[in-house]
Design a binder for these strands. Sequence first.
DNA 1: CGTCTGACGATAT
DNA 2: TATATCGCCAGAC
Length: 107
Amino acid sequence: MTSETYDRIYEVIEQIPEGNVATYGQIARLAGLGGHARLVGYALHACDRPVPWHRVINARGEVSDRADAYAEQLQHRLLAKEGVRFDERGRIALEQFRWEDEEADAE
DNA sequence: CGTCTGACGATAT
DNA sequence: TATATCGCCAGAC
């Protein structure tokens, strides 16, 4: 655990059910970070835990452009394998696959 | 301790 | 709808 903040983020991501996706901003809110989506992305960048990072996408409903293009393909494949479909532009219908958490109130 | 950068989000144009 | 800009926090140098 790099910091308690990161651990909180990983914990939220691990709660994302299969076949669903969550945005960085949503995770940040559930983790109690407010709307600091950047921290979520940065946390995943330094992730040392086996979290389902492939279920984490940006607010536009698409996979963020990261350094390793290979991981990007992997993310698309993993999501497709779970039933998540992409449109012609390579974007996900958030209104359909977005994970709706009911425990936004952590403590 | 100052500065730059980064898996983002929202708003403006 | 796409592009450009600012704000946010934490880590690397």
